[in-house]
């Protein structure tokens, strides 16, 4: 069987940095033959296998589901496993780790600050389980439609990395965690709405968002965390006004 695949030699510039050894990050340049099926992840894997075994890279599912391979590819936030190198239409492909996270090595960053924020908003259903039916808790499609987009988040951390408010205030919950907060606040099965809204109204909560839309630009799944945050702002404002008019 003859292969009709088109191959091209592309240059990969990878930002290398090992904080234990190096003082400053530096660029390494590699050349690789790529065909139209080569993703950025496959290219990096081939570089590790054939040219330089010391490149560090994190990946898992290779199908755009786990969110562990988010990178800056030519200054754009992308999932390495979903990005076809030939479709980038560039001869030089620049690979950098996500900005604003501390680098562990090369393309691997320490995302614990993102996970801390995520845990702070209690990302699970809270309800009185004693009244639950024997089978699963059903939800009508109209109710699910409200939170459908927010459930598609794969926690790659690109939005948190791109957010200007996170850069200046590291305590800010960030777009990723607030998108999750929106998802659980507006879930009709959840019974903790009041407390959830109170939590995101704190100083480091929704009002730190200045609608710069960096998270929307960054999201590889094309979700809209800004809209979720703006909705949370209105909902929390309504709840606070209700509280004051009652007392």
């Amino acid at each position: 069987m003859s292969s009709t695949k088109e191959t091209k030699t592309l240059t990969f510039k990878i930002k290398r940095f090992n904080p234990v050894v190096d003082d400053e990050p530096y660029w390494d340049t590699y050349e690789l033959d790529c065909d139209d099926g080569t993703t950025v992840l496959i290219a990096i894997q081939e570089l590790i296998a054939k040219q330089d075994g010391s490149i560090a890279m994190r990946y898992n599912c290779r199908a755009g589901v786990c969110g562990s391979c988010a990178l800056l590819v030519n200054n754009k936030y992308m999932l390495a496993c979903e990005t076809l190198v030939l479709q980038l239409n560039k001869k030089v492909i620049k690979l950098e780790p996500l900005p604003s996270y501390p680098v562990i090595k090369d393309l691997v960053v320490d995302m614990s600050q993102f996970y801390e924020k995520l845990l702070a908003i209690d990302p699970y259903l809270k309800r009185d389980h004693s009244k639950d039916p024997e089978t699963e808790i059903l939800q009508i499609p109209e109710d699910f439609h409200i939170i459908e987009e927010a459930t598609k988040c794969i926690l790659c951390g690109a939005c948190h990395s791109s957010c200007v408010s996170v850069w200046t205030d590291t305590n800010y919950l960030g777009p990723g965690a607030l998108l999750k907060a929106f998802r659980f606040t507006n879930d009709t099965r959840d019974e903790d709405r009041r407390e959830r809204l109170k939590r995101v109204t704190s100083e480091d909560g929704v009002y730190r968002c200045h609608t710069a839309f960096n998270c929307v630009e960054a999201c590889p799944k094309e979700l809209n965390p800004t809209e979720a945050i703006q909705t949370l702002k209105r909902q929390s404002a309504k709840q606070t006004l209700k509280f004051w008019s009652r007392s």
């Binding site: 930002k15 940095f17 990050p25 800056l72 200054n75 754009k76 936030y77 950098e96 780790p97 900005p99 604003s100 996270y101 501390p102 680098v103 960053v109 791109s162 200007v164 850069w167 200046t168 609608t211 710069a212 839309f213 960096n214 929307v216 630009e217 960054a218």
Partner: peptide, 21 residues
Amino acid sequence: TDSHGSKFYRWFKPFSRGIGM
């Protein structure tokens, strides 16, 4: 200073920016 330079520099570095920023 992550691998992208200081906090201040990051504000003006043109990566993944749109009209919103």
